[in-house]
Amino acid sequence: MSMKLFKRRGSPPSPADPTAQAPDAQSAFFRMEKINKFYQMGEEQAHILKDVDLALERGEYLSVLGPSGSGKSTLMNIIGCLDVANSGRYTLDGQVIEDLGEGELARIRSREIGFIFQNSQLLPRLNAQKNVELPLIYAGVPPKERRRRAREMLERVGLSDRMGHYPNQLSGGQQQRVAIARALVGNPTLLLADEPTGALDQKTGRQVMGLFRELNDEGRTIIMITHDMNIAKNARRVVHIIDGILTEGGGTADA
């Protein structure tokens, strides 16, 4: 596990990596095909996601831009394996998500996905280092290695002097950086951020975006969900979602 971590950090995988899977339809790193999601609302059935198609290569940095009620949260839940589509096919790192049970979904969340939430969502009773260790606890990583990796990640996000601080002793930006360290510590294949700057002022928001860019430069695949165009344009690729329909917004030409 630790070897893998060092290797990943030393030589980030890129689309050009010969060991990466060929980007064909069957074995793409991330592929959604005709994803549909309905919610039963009393008598009526709400059609939240309509035939969503989306494909990503390793190392991409994508933002999903949409207003509230557009279905972007639902899309995030499905990408993050917190929810399963009603129809369509979603493959992540070679695994077909629709086929998996609750326990296997949890395992995918633990291994493949690093979540970053709007309100950092740190546990107030745990200090920064313990918060970062949390995903490793559920992955069954032994305490010593857990500590080492948590410290490493906190150093990576520039909080080496804040490891023993509790969330209420940290600023909003610092809290969000702890959350990013927590998302990174399991060495996931995909970072999934939901309005990561939503609770931050502009300056700290920019710092967090800078950190995202760095992580992407290191080879991390990032999907960021936002309603803010100014934030979305930090990504290298933007897709729009409106009323459950996803459209390609081209690159960051307007950035």
Partner: peptide, 15 residues
């Protein structure tokens, strides 16, 4: 919220 978060971070129901 804590429970949801832990689940999102990969905690299994039995955990």
């Amino acid at each position: 919220t804590e429970i949801g978060l832990k689940k999102a971070l990969g905690a299994l129901p039995w955990q």
